[in-house]
């Protein structure tokens, strides 16, 4: 520690790269979270379905993905699938992997929300003459999304952080850029503290925005 010369210049020179990396993280996370949420919503309904086959398939999907590290899924898709003739680019592979990963976790969140929904809702809808599907679309889903937003927010932030795993297949996102700066300049403290600060602030901003949304769509008490 004695002879360590601080040189923040290396960070300022690479600011563009770091911000580009951050942007990549946000972009990939956003796309995956969006697609993953749609998948998660559908899978959640499958998880509570009365039809055994649908329910069991959904359970298999969720249990499998939740127990396999994201990195392995990424490596499998990017390096492994070519064996079967399916070749994807880096970012495609990663977004694909993160989407599948997100879908499983988000499905669980939605499932929890569905299970916690008052049973009387379905009955009230039926009594009014609504079909089950209409009840799902117009009553349950809006209510569901509002009630699980806190848990969903938590998941979204986690998934954003998981975007850093893209570095493993050399996608030039923030963590990858930081590591590059570290290896090139040996200014580890500057590099990693910068990354830490950027990530913490970004997560904070995302959390703040999500809380704003939460408040706006929350069910009035």
């Amino acid at each position: 520690m004695k002879d360590y010369q601080y040189n923040w210049d290396v960070i300022w020179r690479s600011v563009n790269d770091l911000l580009y990396g951050l942007w990549l993280d946000v972009y990939m996370a956003f796309v995956s979270v969006l697609a993953g949420s749609l998948i998660g919503l559908v899978v959640a309904f499958a998880l509570v379905s009365k039809q055994g086959l649908i329910r069991k398939s959904a359970q298999v999907y969720v249990t499998m993905i939740r127990n396999i590290p994201l990195m392995i899924i990424v490596l499998f898709i990017y390096f492994g699938l070519p064996d079967a003739g399916l070749v994807f680019g880096e970012i495609q592979s990663f977004v694909f992997a993160l989407t599948i990963y997100a879908g499983a976790y988000i499905a669980e969140v939605f499932r929890g929300g569905l299970v916690a929904m008052p049973k009387g809702l379905t009955e009230a809808g039926l009594a009014l003459g609504l079909s089950n599907t209409k009840i799902n679309i117009f009553v349950k889903i809006p209510l569901l999304i509002r009630s699980v937003m806190p848990a969903l927010s938590n998941n979204y932030i986690s998934l954003f952080k998981d975007a850093s795993i893209a570095a493993v297949i050399a996608i030039p996102e923030l963590t990858f850029q930081t590591r590059r700066i570290n290896l090139e300049t040996f200014k580890t403290i500057e590099a990693w503290s910068s990354a830490t600060v950027i990530y913490v602030i970004t997560c904070f901003i995302i959390a703040f925005l999500l809380r704003r949304v939460e408040k706006r769509v929350a069910v009035p008490k």
Binding site: M1, Y4, K161, D162, A163, S164, I165, A167, T175, T178, R179, N182, T188, I189, A191, W192, A195, T196, Y199, V200, C203, F204
Partner: peptide, 24 residues
């Protein structure tokens, strides 16, 4: 808690690995 939970695990691992070397 907020700092550790605000960064990806990968960043934490790499930070520990590289920064600690500097500190001898």
């Amino acid at each position: 808690v907020d700092v550790i939970r605000g960064i990806p695990v990968l960043v934490l691992i790499l930070t520990f690995f590289y920064v600690l070397t500097i500190w001898g």
